[in-house]
């Protein structure tokens, strides 16, 4: 093993300095999400905001007219489509549209093909929302949003230290260590820490930033419900083999995770089935194939 792995070389600090160069998360999406949560807002205001973005408009109309809804007549105007879809579907489409440019990228160091990360992220988002509802967590859309972006740190690592990711993979494999331990050994931090830093820069809510930071650390994610939901969602999607990278199973799972969320084995089986059905629908509608 090379000496490179024995001491952090402030790589993490250098990555943090470079994060400001990442393209920012679209402001229009953040404004739209704020409007959706504002009880004094309206669909007309939302349509006015979104109508100037052709990609989002196209996605919303495509989703509304998909076979999933089986509409007899085609909807062609944005405001009608938004009214028809409702808050949850609108949120999901906005987030999926905005995150595609980030998540639809090959990440060689994690052995991820194009679309693997997007597929994994969409499935984890669906899983988190399903679990949130099952646990009576008060804000399932927040669980969806956080989970969609939980691995955003992998993209930054790929961009800034892509050539070193292979070394992390080999270290984890040869020394049979946790993948996050290998990331810490080589970089002085892991993709969850970097992801949280990105989301903080993009001014995401603190709950989401914390859950993304915690999602691979059993001692941390067991402390709060949203972190636990996000960790469990990721664990279930990994088990289903959706969009897996080389790091997939190289983690520990906290023994009390299910107790924390008051879930049984039967609940988990039901969740897995629901997640698969919803994920297959999303693939049809978002053209994830």
């Amino acid at each position: 093993m090379s000496d490179d792995y024995n001491a952090p070389d402030f790589t993490l600090e250098r990555i943090f300095e470079k994060l400001v160069n990442l393209p920012t998360f679209p402001k229009v999406i953040q404004k739209a999400l704020a409007l959706l949560k504002d009880p004094n807002s309206s669909i007309a205001k939302l349509a006015e905001l979104l109508r100037y973005d052709p990609a989002i408009t196209a996605n919303i109309l495509r989703f509304t007219n998909s076979a999933h809804f089986g509409l007899a007549q085609r909807i062609t105007d944005l405001e009608t489509a938004l009214t028809f879809l409702g808050q949850q579907h609108i949120t999901e489409i906005l987030l999926a549209s905005a995150s595609l440019p980030y998540l639809n990228t090959p990440i060689a160091g994690y052995r991820m093909e194009p679309k693997d990360l997007w597929r994994h992220s969409i499935a984890t988002a669906i899983a988190a929302e399903t679990l949130a509802k099952l646990c009576s967590y008060p804000d399932p859309p927040t669980a969806f949003t956080g989970a969609l972006l939980h691995d955003i740190g992998k993209i930054a690592l790929n961009i800034f230290v892509g050539e070193r990711l292979e070394g992390i993979f080999q270290l984890a494999k040869q020394e049979k260590m946790l993948f996050t331990e290998a990331e810490w050994r080589v970089l002085g931090g892991d993709h969850a820490v970097i992801g949280a830093e990105i989301l903080q820069l993009w001014e995401f809510p603190h709950d989401i930033v914390r859950a993304v930071r915690n999602h691979h650390d059993p001692d941390l994610y067991i402390q709060d419900t949203l972190s636990a939901i996000m960790a469990l969602a990721n664990i279930l999607v990994i088990q289903m083999g959706i969009g897996l990278g080389a790091d997939a199973f190289r983690y520990n799972v906290h023994a009390e995770l299910l107790n924390k969320l008051r879930l049984t084995r039967a609940d988990i089986h039901r969740c897995v089935a629901m997640i698969l059905l919803d994920f297959n629908r999303s693939q049809d509608m978002l053209n994830l194939e």
Binding site: Y251, V253, L257, I268
Partner: peptide, 16 residues
């Protein structure tokens, strides 16, 4: 073929 597993975890979560 399959049934991969995490390094450690509760049996209720070991779907494999």
């Amino acid at each position: 073929a399959g049934a991969a597993c995490f390094f450690s975890g509760p049996a209720d979560l070991s779907l494999g």
